[in-house]
Design a protein around this nucleic acid. Sequence first.
DNA 1: TGATCTCCGATCAAGATGGTCGGGTAAAGA
DNA 2: TCTTTACCCGACCATCTTGATCGGAGATCA
Lengths: 157, 157
Amino acid sequence: MLKISKKADYALMALQHIASVQFGDVTPGRVVNTKEIAEEYNIPLELLAKVLQVLSKNGLIESHNGPKGGYLLARSARQVTIAQIIESIEGPLAITDCSHEKDGEFCMQLEHCNIRTPLLKIQDSIYQLLNNMTLGDMMGGTPLITIQSPSAQGVER
Amino acid sequence: MLKISKKADYALMALQHIASVQFGDVTPGRVVNTKEIAEEYNIPLELLAKVLQVLSKNGLIESHNGPKGGYLLARSARQVTIAQIIESIEGPLAITDCSHEKDGEFCMQLEHCNIRTPLLKIQDSIYQLLNNMTLGDMMGGTPLITIQSPSAQGVER
DNA sequence: TGATCTCCGATCAAGATGGTCGGGTAAAGA
DNA sequence: TCTTTACCCGACCATCTTGATCGGAGATCA
């Protein structure tokens, strides 16, 4: 069903929360720890911890150890795209198996495959969609998706 | 990874094949049976059979029993969208769990969820994308989607 | 030093998915 | 009518992915 994994969901929630604390009006610059997020959104603590670790390893957030430790955005919210977040957790976006040309494993259908090219184009469009929306767009009341609808962008028919 | 299931892949291949036989120049109007498609694309016969049964039950193709039987498109190739095909196999498109409001099951995060609205917008955009491309677009030499993505050459990471 | 927090690897159960099997029913042709 | 061919349908199973858990090591600050 083209579903996003729960881990990625959690990542989005966590980043949104961190961003809104860090750049909010109440306690700007405050560090946020795992427990706070887990309790706020009812996310299993250990699972969320692992998600944040991955995000940290991929450079989306900075971790600070020890008491009073926690996480901070590594970049501005407007410089983090949804695509980056999801791919950071789930790996490269691949709508179909044959899109990442790992040599060695070969698709049984490849020689006569008639849908590869169109699927790759769809995949590109989805990627563009996700890459044009940032964490910043998810927060404030600013319009969320600034990309034009596919038809407006030129689906020729 | 936002992946499409293999069943849906098979459905797309099969429909593309049926359409190209049915409206092709060689043997227009010919009925196509399961075995022919399975052999052409190296798809497990029984699995493909099940996929075609679902497509038939959902009104995308017509089945004809007996010897010389097989499948035909129920509508013109331009009237079948990719979204319809995928949803016919995988059920309603749902990028995230909380998008289909089944009463009874409630999302633990819902009360404080901060990402639901933006995710639903993304889902909408993806749906539009898939619903604006038809089986007919997948076939002929006509351009499919003219959107150019910066990552068209492959995502390196 | 001790309390608190992040970090990291190993592990596990449950569910979805891909794939298989076998017993039906409908239709065409000899 | 009988046989062959092809669709129909439900049960079944192995495997992979996913969500979730546990235990301990390392860093930081009072």
